[in-house]
C-alpha cells in the first residue's frame, strides 16, 4: 500500500532528523497540501441531481467514503455510531468550504479524530470529496 510507505518513511525521517512532538507537527503541516478544488464552487453548492446521486453513492460505498461506517445518514442501512448523525448539516456548516475541510482531513481540527483523512491520505479524489460534500450539505 502506498500510504503505508509514506508512514514508514515519515517515521524514519522523524527518527533521523527531528525529535519531539513540536517538530513532528511541522512535518505533518508540510505534508498536508491545501485541497485543490475541482470545478467551480457553484457546481457543488447548487448541485445537479446527478452530482447528488453520485455523492450519495460514494458516501455509502464501503470501498469509497463508507461514511455509514460511522454516521447515520439519510436512508443508509446499518449505520455505525462512532460519529454524530449527519443531519442539519447546512445549519452546522453554513460555510461549504469548512464542511469540505472536515472531510478532507478531520484531524486538522480535531487531532484525535478517528475520521479518516479522506483527502490528505488520498482515500478519495478531490472530485469525489466535492460530490460527497455536496450531497452531505443537503442533509
Amino acid at each position: 500500500m502506498s500510504h503505508t510507505g509514506v508512514t514508514t518513511r515519515m517515521k524514519k525521517t522523524i527518527g533521523i532528523t527531528l525529535s519531539g512532538a513540536a517538530s513532528a507537527l511541522i512535518l505533518v503541516g508540510g505534508l498536508t497540501a491545501a485541497p485543490a478544488r475541482a470545478g467551480s464552487m457553484a457546481e457543488w453548492t447548487h448541485p445537479s441531481a446527478a452530482v447528488l446521486a453520485a455523492g450519495k453513492k460514494l458516501a455509502f460505498n464501503r470501498k469509497k467514503g463508507n461514511c455509514l461506517a460511522c454516521h447515520q445518514i439519510d436512508d443508509g442501512t446499518d449505520p455505525g455510531n462512532v460519529g454524530p448523525p449527519l443531519v442539519h448539516v447546512k445549519k452546522r456548516y453554513p460555510d461549504f468550504a469548512k464542511l469540505r475541510a472536515q472531510i478532507w482531513d478531520a484531524t486538522a481540527n480535531h487531532p484525535n479524530s478517528v475520521m479518516p483523512p479522506f483527502g490528505r491520505n488520498r482515500i478519495l479524489t478531490n472530485k469525489e470529496i466535492d460530490e460527497i460534500a455536496a450531497y452531505i450539505w443537503t442533509q
Partner: peptide
C-alpha cells in the same frame, strides 16, 4: 497506521462499545 489512519486504540479503546457499520 494505514491509509485510513487508525490505531488499535482508536477502535478498541476510544470507541469500544460503539458500532462501526
Amino acid at each position: 497506521r494505514g491509509q485510513l489512519n487508525f490505531s488499535c486504540a482508536s477502535c478498541h479503546i476510544q470507541n469500544a462499545g460503539r458500532l462501526i457499520r
